[in-house]
């Protein structure tokens, strides 16, 4: 079952992972003195930009995005506008959560916000692509019986992996090792990135191994 979808998913994920790789390599070639630790914000934004662009393009091409009932330009524009609004709100939300987790409030606000942007582009953006700007659907997806398609299950796995990765990424910060990747927010964004990549690999694999047991109620 769903072999076609799994294959599509795997190739999509390969493209996204490749875009992350390129977003790391190309600036290294172009910008003098580029490094993931040293010019962390640059890396962070280049990766977020790449993931955003590639995801939007791929999902649009694949046509996963739920079909809209109306096809007027005005409706599409408002949908686009709402998506952008949600993107921004989600950045603010992640920023707040990260600050509540103990990030400095004022000192490195830019770094914190950049991390929020990265998290948004790794998680919220995918929700936007798969489910459209519909918060209720987002909340529904993250429940045991909420997944309505293979793509929903994949969404669950990648988002969970990313968030857990960012969470685990906070662990090394208090250690006194004095490594460059312990600086805020390097370890968290690296953790989120690693979690995201793991999710990209894990989601198709998990679905492939559980394809016999997966049932979706309505599609």
């Amino acid at each position: 079952m769903w072999d076609h979808e799994i294959r599509a998913m795997a190739s999509t994920h390969a493209i996204i992972a490749a875009s992350v790789f390129m977003a790391t390599v190309i600036p290294a070639a172009l910008v003098p003195g580029f490094s993931v630790y040293g010019t962390h914000l640059l890396w962070l934004y280049s990766v977020s930009g790449a993931v955003t662009a590639v995801s939007v393009a791929v999902f649009w091409l694949l046509g996963i995005t739920p079909p809209t009932k109306k096809h007027t330009v005005g409706f599409k524009l408002s949908r686009l506008f709402r998506s952008c609004l949600y993107f921004f709100l989600s950045c603010l939300f992640f920023h707040t959560v990260v600050v509540l987790y103990g990030a400095p409030l004022i000192e490195s606000a830019l770094e914190t916000f950049s991390l929020a942007v990265l998290l948004t582009s790794l998680t919220t953006l995918r929700c936007l692509c798969v489910l459209g700007p519909n918060v209720q659907a987002w909340i529904r997806v993250f429940s045991r019986h909420g997944a309505m398609s293979v793509w929903d299950t994949c969404l669950q796995i990648t988002v969970a992996c990313t968030v857990v990765g960012a969470w685990v990424g906070a662990f090394p910060i208090p250690l006194d090792w004095d490594r460059p990747w312990q600086v805020w927010p390097v370890s968290c964004s690296l953790g989120a990135m690693i979690g995201f990549l793991t999710g990209l690999v894990a989601a198709p694999a998990w679905i492939h191994y559980h394809r016999k047991h997966l049932t979706y109620k309505c599609k």
């Binding site: 909340i139 529904r140 993250f142 429940s143 045991r144 019986h145 909420g146 109620k217 309505c218």
Partner: peptide, 16 residues
């Protein structure tokens, strides 16, 4: 709670 579907009122879904 949300994962268990307890946070929100159940959707009016005859199947479910």
């Amino acid at each position: 709670l949300n994962w268990d579907g307890l946070l929100l009122p159940p959707i009016h879904d005859p199947l479910k």
